[in-house]
Nucleic acid binder design. Structure first.
Lengths: 213, 213
DNA sequence: AAGTGTATCAAACGTTTGTTTTGAAGTAAA
DNA sequence: TTTACTTCAAAACAAACGTTTGATACACTT
């Protein structure tokens, strides 16, 4: 009994540390986040980071969770609905992962962070999350526009879609100053998703040889 | 005569410092760039930064030069050619400023940097460069699609265009790992500009009420 | 010739960073 | 009770950062 309590307590510290790390890392990025702030937020001692995770970098790696992102790739891949709608759904869900603070998507926001400021963990992130998700969208695009598209054009189409989405998170410091009244509530996210979806489908249409009715 | 030599020499150190700062800042961003690396690169003493610029932050501010960016807004604004072509030209020139290393555009790359990692100078950058350039593209878009477009939709169109462009610079660490053989030579930049231009025009077309022949 | 101001330098300053050590407190086993 | 182990907090650690200092050399003025 007492052992279990002890374990629960130590697990609690570990979990509190993980939760605080996710928060601080996603707010400040890897470099700017400090171990002290994480520990202060988790209300544990500074040494706990190295005790439980042996290093700041390992703690960062431990906070990574690609499941929500990878789930976006799986759920619609075998669907009977046409590729256009599946792309719209993906953009919508991806934006929610990226922008909605009510989602437990804080982990996903690392990706956007890492784009600008590479850390030693970037390689893992690219291989385990970004490659699959880019491949997924590439397959969707190819399904929409047909097989005759070149590799280079296909790549640029995928970049155009991701570029539009990521800009809202990546450019937030600027957007906030450009449009101080703009906040990413659920309604706004829906509108953004609708816009990017239609904008991209129109952009893709010129490459298409066969269209979805 | 001897005074001039002295002045020239001291001006040389100041200029070398500025050049090195531009290089290091654009490579590592403000936070990750160190005064020591800048001085080592400029082959001057560490104290020179504070002697000539009084602080690292002031040195950073001194390296900013918005003229190449603002020039993009001016040169085509009074042109007789239609808005679609002017938008294509802008995207092309903007991408060259953003991606071409042969351009003296290193200064422009700060902007993309700052998006992710705000520094105290961000406010100045937004007000003096990003606001005008966004406004310029917003005017182009409004000219293309007509006056009936809502403010929110207009804003999202502008974001879509900038998002596509900036992604190539901002996502470079990731893109490099996704496609190791891809490099931004002049030919590739032309292709990217062509793609983003056509992609965006197609996206805008659905909002348009009057079209350019 | 003595004095003035500027440019440069090596060295050190005070912080802040991630990490490590030390030891106290509590629990489980002998 | 004694022994061994886990948990964790305070303190100390080495390294790196931006910045400051005081000395030195030089060109110029008076």
């Amino acid at each position: 009994m007492i052992t279990e309590t002890k374990i629960n307590l130590s697990e609690q510290t570990r979990e509190r540390l993980l939760a605080a790390a996710r928060l601080v890392f996603s707010k400040n990025g890897f470099q700017n986040a400090t171990v002290r702030e994480i520990c202060r937020h988790a209300e544990v001692n500074i040494a706990a980071v190295n005790y439980y995770f042996s290093s700041k970098e390992a703690l960062f790696a431990a906070t990574l969770n690609f499941e929500p992102l990878l789930a976006l790739c799986k759920e619609t891949s075998q669907s009977p609905i046409c590729a256009q709608v599946r792309l719209l759904n993906f953009i919508h869900d991806f934006l929610i992962q990226l922008l909605d603070k009510k989602e437990f998507s804080v982990q996903c926001q690392f990706m956007a962070r890492e784009l600008a400021e590479p850390t030693p963990v970037l390689e893992k992130i690219v291989q385990e999350a970004i490659v699959p998700i880019h491949q997924f969208v590439a397959n969707l695009v190819r399904e929409i526009v047909g097989e005759q598209i070149s590799e280079a054009e296909l790549r640029r189409c995928v970049f155009s879609i991701f570029g539009q989405c990521v800009y809202y998170r990546h450019g937030q410091p600027v957007i906030q100053r450009l449009h101080p009244n703009l906040s990413y509530d659920h309604k706004e996210i829906e509108a953004i998703a609708k816009h990017i979806g239609e904008f991209s489908l129109a952009g893709l249409k010129q490459f298409a040889q066969n269209k979805c009715p």
